[in-house]
Amino acid sequence: MTHPLLSLNQATIKYAPLADALRVTADAGYTSIGLWREPVAEVGLAASVKLVEDSGLRVSSMCRGGFFTLAEGAERRAAIDDNRRAIDETAALGAPALVLVAGGIPAGSRDLIGARSRVTDALGELSDYALEAGVTLAIEPLHPMYVSDRAVVSTLGQALDIAEQFPAEAVGVVVDTFHVWWDPQVLDQIARAGASGRIASYQVCDWATPLAADVLLSRHYPGDGVIDFASLTTAVVASGYAGDIEVEIFNQEIWDASWPEVAGRTASAFDAVVSPYLSGVGVL
């Protein structure tokens, strides 16, 4: 058996269809999986719910919603509507949180401040809906190298500045080591998030250079890079978070490996560099 808090994010075995991802994850001894909307859509929501129930696995999170930075118009309305559907899917699958990627600067714009403000506006439209569904909207700050095209929210502090405008049950944050390890304020911000019950998900993977030509694919197994999992995990645990911990890796070489091999290697890496700092922490 793997550590009881370890969850395999489906992106780590990207090419596995939902049924295969659930089987591989369960066979490797995991008790939890983080799902993505696209594989769920491929088989349909009702069939996905049945597959998850039959697998015996918990769903630690649903990825992803967001992309809120467009100016008002038909495309923004479509994005808001799609996020409502994502909330419904998250609730149906029993996941506690929908991970949100804020969105980058819209084409033709240089207005970073305005783009960030539209993220807050979107959450204002969605927070009550999420609250009624029992789903936490989890803002994931991304490393600043993604600010132009993926996420105008770059630090945990920025994510909390937005989240704290809403009930903690409706809007929280994701602590993803790949994205926040570099931030000199990260430990203080983790404590801040814990004080208001805002940590909706903890995700771990490592950072190593040189980065891939496509920087999106630069994640590594925990322990294969420079991230200090001791300090970050200790801070997350001290904050009061006791939920599942996902390993989420985007890396072409890992994607091309066999799924059982990746699941096993992920569990071993987690046991080596994350588990030692989880003593006494139980499953929510």
Rank of each mutant, 00 (worst) to 15 (best):
W259Y: 04
L6Y: 03
D214E: 09
F67K: 00
G280V: 15
D161S: 15
A46S: 07
Y241A: 13
I249N: 12
V153R: 01
I105V: 15
P184T: 06
R23E: 14
G29L: 09
Y221H: 13
E253D: 14
G280P: 10
A21V: 03
A107I: 11
R110Y: 02
A41V: 03
A21W: 06
A238M: 11
A213F: 03
L217K: 12
V273W: 05
K14Q: 15
I162A: 10
V180W: 10
A95E: 12
L6V: 05
D81V: 07
Y221E: 01
E132H: 08
G157E: 09
L131K: 08
V152C: 03
N83P: 01
H179A: 08
R219A: 09
N251D: 13
T69I: 02
D224N: 11
P276K: 11
A159P: 01
T90S: 06
V180G: 12
V237H: 13
L35F: 04
L211P: 01
D128Y: 08
D81T: 13
D27F: 06
V204A: 09
D82C: 00
P96A: 13
R76M: 06
A91W: 13
G108D: 14
V171L: 13
E38K: 15
S231Y: 03
Q158F: 10
V174Q: 04
A19Q: 12
Q252T: 15
V237D: 09
R37A: 00
W36G: 05
R58E: 04
A212K: 05
A242Q: 14
V152N: 07
D20H: 05
S61I: 10
A107C: 01
A151Y: 00
V186G: 06
A238C: 11
S239H: 06
G134I: 11
T69H: 02
A91N: 12
L278D: 09
P17N: 12
S61E: 11
V274T: 10
G282E: 15
A208I: 01
R77C: 02
Y221C: 07
E246G: 06
M1N: 02
A272P: 01
S60N: 07
E140R: 00
S60L: 03
A133H: 12
